[in-house]
């Protein structure tokens, strides 16, 4: 048997619903095949538990284990790094628990924070550089670890309570649309719940819109004082959060 044929055979044994038998092995291979069959699943479940730790805590051992094993059967890993394994798990959980939106939202937050943990480094712009900008014409670059997602529940409060190992609050639907942004400041992954105006502003800026035009869009319908307050608070938070890592004049 060629090496490739043998490796295809062992791959099928590992992926199979139950450990198989085969003629390629010496002696009684059942116990050995079972070791590889089992170790594959145990390691991937452990990987998902590690990445989705708060989701696991929220839905409990049994529900998580069942969902994880079903996911593993549907999504065998292909990358050399386990870092990217489980990318589809939030969407998978949404399909599995459509009435419990907080589960997939928690999973997204787990995933985004994990990715921010070892994402690309980018130091924030210094106060001197920020102070010298002609903001109206400036196009901003945010930290490369920045991720945004719309949320419908108090998922940030639940995640926070689980992280502090206190009793999480009951699930609540948010009274108005909101989003969570995730990024890394220094070496620490961070998250913050934001409103629709900031969500829209970040989206526009990430598409290359100038700061001036972005402010005009998100201030529509506001009087001057309210617009100034909105933009001032937003910008101040971004600077405090070390989100702004680049700036260039609009071409």
């Amino acid at each position: 048997m060629s090496l490739l044929a043998l490796q295809r055979g062992l791959k099928q044994h590992i992926l199979g619903a139950v450990p198989g038998e085969g003629g390629a092995y010496r002696g009684d291979a059942a116990a050995g095949l079972a070791v590889y069959h089992n170790a594959y699943r145990v390691q991937l479940v452990a990987c998902l538990r590690d990445t989705y730790e708060k989701t696991w805590a929220w839905i409990g051992d049994e529900a998580f284990e069942t969902a994880a094993r079903d996911y593993i059967a549907e999504y065998p890993p292909s990358s050399w790094t386990l870092n990217v394994y489980g990318a589809e798990f939030p969407a998978y959980l949404l399909a599995r628990f459509p009435e419990d939106a907080e589960i997939a939202e928690l999973a997204w937050l787990d995933w985004a924070l994990r990715r921010a943990f070892d994402g690309e480094d980018a130091p924030p712009l210094s106060p001197e550089v920020l102070g010298a900008l002609d903001w109206e014409q400036t196009v901003l670059t945010f930290a490369p670890t920045l991720e945004l997602a719309s949320v419908t529940t108090n998922v940030a409060a639940i995640w926070s309570a689980l992280a502090e190992e206190t009793n999480p609050p009951p699930v609540e639907a948010l009274p108005e649309p909101a989003a969570v942004r995730v990024w890394r400041a220094g070496l620490s992954p961070q998250y913050r719940t934001i409103g629709p105006a900031e969500f829209r502003a970040i989206d526009l800026l990430q598409r290359g819109e100038s700061f001036g035009n972005t402010c005009a869009v998100v201030s529509e319908g506001l009087d001057e004082a309210a617009a100034t307050q909105l933009i001032g608070e937003m910008l101040s938070t971004w600077i405090q959060d070390e989100l702004i890592v680049g700036a260039r004049a609009e071409p």
């Binding site: 060629s2 090496l3 490739l4 043998l6 490796q7 295809r8 062992l10 791959k11 590992i14 992926l15 390629a24 590889y36 170790a39 594959y40 390691q43 991937l44 990987c47 065998p76 890993p77 292909s78 990358s79 050399w80 386990l82 394994y85």
Partner: peptide, 24 residues
């Protein structure tokens, strides 16, 4: 070997000790 043809088991899988394997 850990995988083949787009699959990665993330486990250290055994090799047959043959001349073909040695060459590869």
């Amino acid at each position: 070997w850990t995988g083949v043809e787009g699959f990665n088991s993330h486990d250290l899988l055994p090799l047959p000790y043959t001349e073909e394997t040695l060459e590869l």
